[in-house]
């Protein structure tokens, strides 16, 4: 279970950042008073354009960033006060977090298993299960740097799931993957849902969200503009599909100047 309550994340902007963002403001509000709940046994989708605040929200959930305001509870633990316990029950996958290319999948699986307080027996059992599910056995001893993008993604997923976490956080799960690997990843997310795990994914691919997610929260400009099941969102927005719903909400919540 993930409970986000009135999350606000404000970044102070350095002079360099100001130049990059072409702004005179001293701060950037990445996430603005956002609340949502992701429950066990469901896949929750965070939808939004680039820079909407999806990744920042997920980073806050994963304890990597501290909320400026509000709080987040993961499996009942506060992400600031009980960060260690939260880290014990989550896996966070994002393109920015990578496996050390010098090691093999097998070595890293053992390493992170031990880092997460697992015994050798538990690691071996879990390895058998996950390596079979992702067809990793054929390249388990190869260094990460020798693997293809798809293989690397599979290795990352397997390593991050080593301790069978209750909460799975996925930032752009199919980004950069070929269609076959992407399907494999999405299928595994569905399996995790079936196993009763809480899964939260961020994506800007509407069709993917429509097929995968049980509930969706749309974020635009750091604010949540809608939350609900797909039928609920379609009904509320009076649109035929999620893509149309998104564009309608986007137009309503973005001033004209920004759209241009």
């Amino acid at each position: 279970m993930i409970e986000i309550n009135n999350l606000t994340k404000i970044y102070k902007l350095s002079a360099k950042k100001k130049r990059e963002l072409k702004t005179n403001k001293d701060v950037k509000i990445a996430v603005n008073d956002l609340s949502l709940t992701a429950k066990p046994g469901e896949i929750f989708g965070l939808l939004g354009p680039n820079g909407a605040g999806k990744t920042t929200t997920l980073r806050c959930v994963a304890t990597l960033l501290k909320p400026t305001k509000g709080d987040i509870k993961v499996c009942g633990f506060d992400t600031v006060k009980d960060a260690q316990k939260v880290r014990d029950s989550i896996c966070f996958l994002t393109n920015e977090i990578k496996l050390d290319e010098h090691f093999s999948t097998d070595y890293l699986f053992n390493f992170f298993g031990k880092l997460k307080d697992m015994s050798d027996e538990e690691i071996a059992k879990r390895k058998e299960e996950l390596f079979a599910a992702f067809n990793i056995n054929e390249f388990k001893d190869k260094k990460i740097q020798e693997l293809s993008t798809g293989m690397k993604q599979k290795a990352s997923i397997a390593v991050s799931l080593v301790n069978d976490p209750e909460v799975v956080i996925f930032d752009e799960p199919t980004s950069g993957l070929d269609i076959v690997t992407a399907k494999g990843v999405l299928d595994y997310l569905k399996k995790l849902r079936a196993d009763g795990k809480t899964v939260i994914v961020s994506t800007h691919i509407m069709s993917e969200a429509e097929k995968l997610c049980d509930r969706i929260g749309m974020i635009i400009g750091g604010k949540k503009v809608i939350e609900g099941t797909i039928p609920e969102i379609l009904e509320e927005t009076q649109t035929p599909d999620i893509e149309e719903a998104f564009f309608k909400l986007y137009m309503e919540n973005t001033d004209e100047k920004e759209v241009k």
Binding site: T63, L64, Q84, I97, L99, D100, E101, F112, K116
Partner: peptide
């Protein structure tokens, strides 16, 4: 180097102080 390659973060989200 690890920070640059994004490999340090994998340890930072593990239950390690």
């Amino acid at each position: 180097g690890e920070k640059e390659r994004g490999t340090l973060s994998s340890m930072l989200i593990s239950p390690v102080k």
